[in-house]
Structures are given as structure tokens and as C-alpha cells.
Amino acid sequence: MMETLEEAELCFPQINTSCRKHTRPQSESMLIYILLSFVSLFTVILNLLVIVSISHFRQLHTPTNILLLSLAVSDFLVGLLVMPFQILLTEPCWFLGDLVCALYYFVPFITINASVINMVLISVDRYVAICYPLRYSTKVTQKSVKICVLLCWIYAVASSFLFLSENLEQPGRYNSCYGQCMINIIRAVYLLVLFFILPISAIVILYLRVFVVAVSQARAMRSHITAVKLQSSVTVTVKKSELKAARTLGVVVAVFLMCYCPSYCVSLSGFNLTLGSPTSDFISFLPLSNSCINPLIYAFFYPWFRKSVELIVKLYILQPQSCEASLL
């Protein structure tokens, strides 16, 4: 009887070196699966709406929105490819084989790194727009932003192969038991520096500078609003739109930091979480949830996104010349 019970707790009862299953209540497991599946589906739909909106409507083809489009693509891939496999990783039993395990980690590594770099580019975009407004239109063009986005994705893909290539040579070599999905990240210290410490530091420094300049400009506009002439009122309007964009993207950056910092801090502290525990599942899924939150921020702060979603849902985009619709 004891032997049968022990075999029932194994991922692969016929193999002695098999990993053990978690004794998690079935109701709790079902709740986790349903919740994570809903978040995954919601992430795919929302980011697909962002991608279609910015890609289809010509009025939205601005340098800043191109960066948002790149971020939405990485968030879409997280919802489509990363989240479903992350649901499987809430249990220690991996049934898809060692090779699929090694290949799987390339996708989140690429998408998460691309998201981090996109956040840096967004911070640089707002920094130039607020701190150097007269140079913004000449320095930040659609062509230059597209080149930066392309380099961002090339860098994310190349770095993934650099840090994870060893796992493809002998898949499963780092598993402690049969049915586990573990990999080794080469040069983990360099990884933390390149993809966490340096980017996060750059984002924080740039947005602190943007915040200081934005506050000073807002005060200046309020103090001189009564003396503004017709010609300068156009300048004030442009500044207000840039400041509003900076506030919105500042919220995006702040939420990004709140979602990503806990998992990195746990990694830096060396604290080991019990696999399958609620805390471990929360820390693992928190960075991924940022991909679902970003479109919600756009919907709350950007009227053009709400209007474009309405046109998409009504299938207006199927009509000729729909790309010329006015959204701003």
C-alpha cells in the first residue's frame, strides 16, 4: 500500500528517478489554471488590438507609437507563447521532453529582454521630447525609431543564444530528477548587469530628469497662461500633449518596474523559493502579468486607443480608406 502511494506521487511512476508531484488540492490547482489561462487569453486579445490599431491607422504612425507597437508585439508573444508554458511550470512535472524545455526558455528570454530594451527606448523618447523639444522632430524620426526597434530585437535574439546555447548541447543535463525542466544560464552575473541593473538604472535616471523638467514646464505654463499670445498658444498645446504622453508612459514604466523588480530582487538575494508554492507562482508570473497591464493603461489614458478598438470591433477597418480615419 505504501509503495502504491509513493508511486502515485511520482510524475512518471514507472521510473525510479522521476520527480515527485505536488500534493496541492485539486480545487486550488483548477483555480490557478483557470486564472492564468484567462490572463493569457486576455493578454493576447488586448495586445492584438494595440498591434492592429497602430499598424492600420496611419494617423497613429508616430515615433512614440512605433515603440508602443514593438512593446505590444513582445507582450503579445508573452501571452501567446510564454504564459501557457508557464502554467505547465507551476508543477514540477514536465512532460514535453528535455529538448522542448531547452527551446522553451528562449522565447521568454527574448520577449522579456525586448520588453526591457523597449522600456529604455520609451524613456529616451520622452527624455528627448521633454528636455529637448526643439530637436525632437529632427532627432527622433520614424526611420530612426524603426532602426532602434530592429536593433532591439536583434540584440534580444542574439543575447538569448549567447546565454542559453549551452542548454541545447545536452538538454536535461541540469535536471535533478526525471521530468524536471531546469536550465543553466551562462554568465548569470553579466546577465543581471546587462538586462536588469543597467536598463533599470537608465530608465529611472531618464524619467527622474523628465519628471523634474515636466514639473518646471507645468509651473511655467500656469504662471504665464494669461500672457500667452495666439502664436505661443500653439507651443503651449504641443507642450501639454508631450507632458500628457510623458505622464502616461511614466505610468507604463512605473508599472513595469513594480512587476519586474520583485523577481530580480529575489534572484539577487539568493533566496530559494519552494517550487509550486503560492509565493513562487506569484513571483514567477508577476513579470508576465505586465504584458496584460500595459494595454489596460493605454485604454485608460489614450482616447485614440479606445476609439480605434471601437472601429476594429465594428469591423470598420475592412472598409476602403479606413486607415485614414481620424482618431486624434
Rank of each mutant, 00 (worst) to 15 (best):
G250A: 07
N16G: 15
S137Y: 14
S277C: 08
F300K: 10
V313T: 06
F195V: 00
S277K: 08
V52T: 06
I87Q: 10
R24I: 08
I34T: 15
L80V: 11
N290T: 05
S137Q: 12
V50L: 04
C177H: 11
F38E: 02
V193L: 11
A188T: 10
L273N: 05
R187A: 15
A158K: 04
L60I: 00
M30Q: 10
F305K: 01
T64C: 08
G172Y: 01
L206H: 11
R209C: 13
S40C: 05
V236Y: 15
S322F: 12
L162E: 06
P63L: 06
T226D: 04
T279G: 01
R222F: 11
M119D: 07
Q180C: 11
G97D: 07
M182V: 15
V82P: 07
N16M: 15
I154T: 10
L68G: 09
E166K: 04
E28Q: 14
P199Y: 04
S165P: 03
P320E: 01
L230H: 12
I117A: 12
Y298I: 05
M30G: 00
K143G: 01
I183H: 05
S280Q: 13
E91N: 09
I154N: 09
C101L: 01
Q319K: 12
L71P: 03
I51G: 03
R173V: 08
P287R: 00
A158E: 03
P262M: 08
F305W: 10
Y298K: 03
V193Y: 07
C323E: 15
E3C: 06
R126C: 02
K244P: 00
I183Q: 03
A8F: 06
T90E: 08
S267G: 08
M1V: 04
Y178Q: 13
Y207V: 07
P13Y: 09
A129S: 09
L71N: 05
P278K: 15
L243S: 12
I112T: 12
D75L: 05
T62Y: 07
